[in-house]
Amino acid sequence: MARPRLAVVKFASCDGCQLSLLDCEDELLAVAGAVEIANFPEASRAMQPGPYDVTLVEGSITTEHDAARLRALRDETLILVSIGACATSGGIQALRNFADVGEMVRAVYARPDFINTLATSTPVAAHVKVDYELRGCPIDKGQLLELVSALLAGRRPGLPSHSVCVECKLAGQVCVMVAHGTPCLGPVTHAGCGSLCPGYHRGCYGCFGPAETTNTTSLAAQWQALGASQRDIHRAFRTFNAASEPFRKEADAHG
């Protein structure tokens, strides 16, 4: 049986999520043995044309050119997986969605007339059908390997959509919110990181975006009870997943 052909393609992003694949180290040779890495510019200049069996898409869509490129990519891909906060929610660059992008371009670039960009940064799923999503800023390499293994075996990948709290409790960590009074986004954040920050006595930053069911309003009220200001709450929801609907709405409600 021919090995499935894999492509790893980026749009507006920092490359950190693709690096998670190269970061697999111990498993990298097994991945390279199990799939044919047909197009992965970050790893090799030998870029082969499609079609691809699996394409990992990193980054958000910020230009008309990228939107067209993404649609073409969808047409030559069997299974399309968006990876990381940029591809799944628009990323930190989606902060432009709440501002005047023309003003930003004039402030940043010496020749604003050279810049041709969209007013918004949007996730891959806003443009094409997505088969699977890996959340996170960056993604978790364990989840990436789980997804690749599942696709190879033709089984459902284990990518739970519940809160980070579940992972925190599975790991036997002490709740930083209840025991330390530290505001934490864990109760509304999608699992997948293994409850990394609470494991280091920090509140969750929400980098995996909203969980399958969220009650950001109730959590924000609890944050206020712990002394967080309106601005703290606004900023907490305005990070890597600012444009995801539950986080966008909650940020708006606090200034």
Partner: peptide, 14 residues
């Protein structure tokens, strides 16, 4: 209750 509940599953895990 649902207006306050976070559906975070902490209660069942503890």
């Amino acid at each position: 209750v649902a207006a306050r509940c976070l559906a975070c599953a902490n209660c069942t895990n503890v």
